[in-house]
Design a protein around this nucleic acid. Structure first.
Length: 350
DNA sequence: AAGCCGGGGTT
DNA sequence: AACCCAGGCTT
């Protein structure tokens, strides 16, 4: 009978190999983690890599050192700082959550999973992560890393997402009462650095002796996943206009849906058929003969550009002018910044 | 249960 | 260019 993986073995590995991350309190440190920083980092890390998150985390915590500071911020300031990180509903829910914590919880995060779960933008994974890491509660975190580690330890071939309940059960069975916060981070670090999606480093894995997939040589093909649907191609038109004083014509996108609440160029809907032109103002729109290509979660976009220089008297039906000093391209979501990059040269040379 | 949400990295 | 990675919300 193969021995059950021991949490103590993993904690021992973590004590020596824990990654140094801006939001992490290293194992053995005498300070308690700040729930605000744990929450902020975990929300940023949803579907997003450590490398992409680092600079955003540093900027957010510098601008807003506490959850109440963040709750007091302007919506557009937060959305602008989130630009480029993706999944913008996270930023809208981040603000909602900060304001609930400020107004209903006296500026302190709840310390129980069940209460965390009620907050906007906090689901099963994030609630467990905050409870375990910030409050050292024996909750089980199940993210993509943990799913992969469990699928391999127990050689589970059921494809995701159907396998999720079984993988969660296996993970819960391993969660210790001793140092659950460090343990949660240790399993995820193991998945991120040793038990990787391709070419897992089984030779140096602290749990290799207990791993069934290692014996069966199936580790590299686990976890199985149900095949995904192909992405259709959608087309659209974006209108990039600059007034003679250098101000840019932009609009805030509606709060729901794609890029919700973000700044963008006025334009047509994005459809699989040819898009209907929808200029925000009558003007001499010209064709820069370049197209923005961008891929979203569920479709490819080919965005045609139209450029114009507008007189000071222009009164567009859509959008508002942002002066050169108000407008920061870094506050645009990536597809809109790509459009700006193509439009800036033709529109900024006198 | 299935669809809606970005972006970056690797092959 | 195709593929891979990866939580929460909505319907």
């Amino acid at each position: 009978m193969r021995e059950k993986p021991q949490s103590a073995d993993l904690l021992h590995w973590y004590d020596r190999h824990a990654r140094n991350l801006p939001w992490r309190v290293p194992p053995g440190a005498e300070v308690d983690p700040d729930p605000y920083r744990v929450w902020l980092s975990e929300v940023m890390l949803q579907q997003t890599t450590v490398a992409a998150v680092k600079s955003y985390f540093e900027r957010f915590t510098t601008l807003w050192p506490t959850v109440s500071n963040l709750a007091d911020a302007e919506d557009q300031a937060v959305m602008g700082e989130w630009a480029g990180l993706g999944y913008y509903a996270r930023a809208r829910n981040l603000l909602k959550c900060a304001r609930v914590v400020r107004d209903a919880h006296g500026g302190r995060f709840p310390d129980q999973r069940e209460d965390l779960l009620k907050l906007p933008g906090i689901g099963p994974y994030t609630a467990s992560a905050i409870a375990a890491i910030a409050f050292d509660r024996a909750e089980t975190v199940v993210d993509g890393n943990v799913e992969r580690v469990m699928a391999r330890l127990y050689d589970i071939h059921t494809p995701l997402p159907a396998a999720k309940p079984e993988l969660t059960e296996k993970a819960a069975g391993l969660t210790p009462d001793l140092r659950p916060g460090d343990y949660a981070q240790a399993v995820m670090d193991l998945g991120a650095t040793i038990c990787t999606p391709r070419n897992p480093a089984c030779g140096i894995c602290p749990w290799s002796a207990a791993c069934i997939a290692r014996v069966n040589r199936t580790a590299a093909e686990l976890p199985k996943k149900t095949p995904k649907k192909p992405k259709p191609i959608r087309h659209g038109i974006a209108y990039v206009a600059r007034r003679e004083d250098g101000a840019w014509l932009l609009e805030q996108r509606p709060d729901k849906g794609l890029l919700g609440g973000m700044l963008g160029w006025p334009g047509s809907d994005w459809t699989e058929a040819d898009p209907l032109p929808a200029p925000p103002i009558e003007a001499d729109w010209h064709d820069p003969n370049a197209e923005v290509r961008h891929t979203f979660t569920h479709f490819h976009l080919r965005l045609t550009l139209r450029l114009a220089t507008l007189p000071m008297t222009a009164a567009p039906e859509r959008g508002t002018f942002l002066s050169q000093t108000e407008f920061r391209p870094a506050n645009l979501p990536t597809v809109m910044r790509k459009a700006f990059d193509l439009a800036r040269d033709p529109l900024t040379k006198d």
